[in-house]
Nucleic acid binder design. Structure first.
Lengths: 184, 184
DNA sequence: ATAACCATGTAAATGGTTACATGATTAG
DNA sequence: CTAATCATGTAACCATTTACATGGTTAT
């Protein structure tokens, strides 16, 4: 999924600014399966505007909360944008892409200093723990099934990682009991 | 992790050709947490050769299996290469990067045609099932702990996805029972 | 024969990340 | 007053993906 489609997806959930879109990928509903930075979002929004898939709208006057932020740009999907998004969803998705540098490092645990290994392990576990905890705080009320399903999938993934790491800490942390001779 | 470090990692496990390195990322021990194509591997190997981190070696004469493949190039790590790899492992790893187009699609299940949704779901599940099954065929004998740990982590991940999807098929596949009105 | 696989490589296109540049507002 | 957060955007750099180009071998 390119940044453009990602933006269309967030906008179909409601009007938003570039800043708000980023937030959705940081702590929102997409957090566990997609990722984008400002450097992708702003150019993507500019292109979408160019192509007529989104328009710039003033934030609803009711939300005068935005009084002090005159430079905030809120985008809204056009009908064409909605249609293009539907077409993007109709394609066959590619395989999941996972890049875990931490897992790569732990794979080579014998080449890491014990202190460093412990840090990598603990940081990794702590991160997944906090993600799992965060997801548990979300309210499922009124959320469509597809979204709940994907949320649950993320939750299942986080929980599995945490559970496995808690259960197998010793396996990687304790010095190797001779079984590594063969593969060196 | 850039393609260069990834290549160093596979080569520390033993001499290999570009083609063999790719295989490792397709069906080998890295399959579930990293991914690279030929377009990354061959240029990376060329650079590593340039920098003196690897050398080209003839495949061991014993393995005359390679008789008919004179253009096969086997690479081997130099001491510098080993050292550079260790340094790469000593750094703090970045966060896992996950991009799941399929999850993104399922998130927006209301916008997908039922047939397409079913296809996406079934393909996704089938893929994770086959990955999980494959990992169960691997022999743990003589494999160092770090590698076993990461293998188990991948296994736990695959199993969690399969289990969750099997258990919650109805949730996403059955037409929405009115709870989606709110977020539309 | 012919498909599948082994095997290597390049070039162009695509797209993402990082660093830079700026400035207002809010909470402590 | 100072740090954090809100807010947008560009340019250079970096890296990957895709398409192209080639050709040998093995199994059916």
């Amino acid at each position: 999924m390119d940044a453009k489609t990602l933006c269309l997806g967030t906008l179909i959930l409601g009007d938003a600014s570039g800043y708000e879109i980023k937030k959705m990928f940081e702590e929102g509903p997409f957090a566990h399966f997609q990722d984008v930075g400002y450097g992708s979002i702003y150019p993507a929004l500019a292109k979408l505007l160019d192509e007529g898939l989104v328009i710039e709208v003033r934030a609803a006057p009711e939300s005068v909360v935005d009084k002090g932020h005159p430079d905030k740009k809120v985008y809204s999907l056009t009908d064409t944008g909605r249609e293009v998004f539907r077409q993007a969803l109709a394609k066959t998705p590619g395989r999941d892409k996972i890049r875990s540098d931490a897992a790569f490092m732990m794979f080579f645990s014998e080449f890491l200093e014990p202190v460093h290994l412990r840090n990598v392990f603990d940081d990794y576990l702590a991160h997944y723990k906090s993600r799992a905890d965060f997801m548990r705080t979300l309210d499922p009320t009124g959320v469509p099934q597809g979204r709940l399903f994907v949320r649950g999938l993320g939750q299942a993934f986080y929980d599995a990682v945490v559970e496995y790491m808690d259960a197998n800490r010793d396996m990687i942390m304790k010095p190797d009991a001779g079984s590594n001779r063969a593969a060196e």
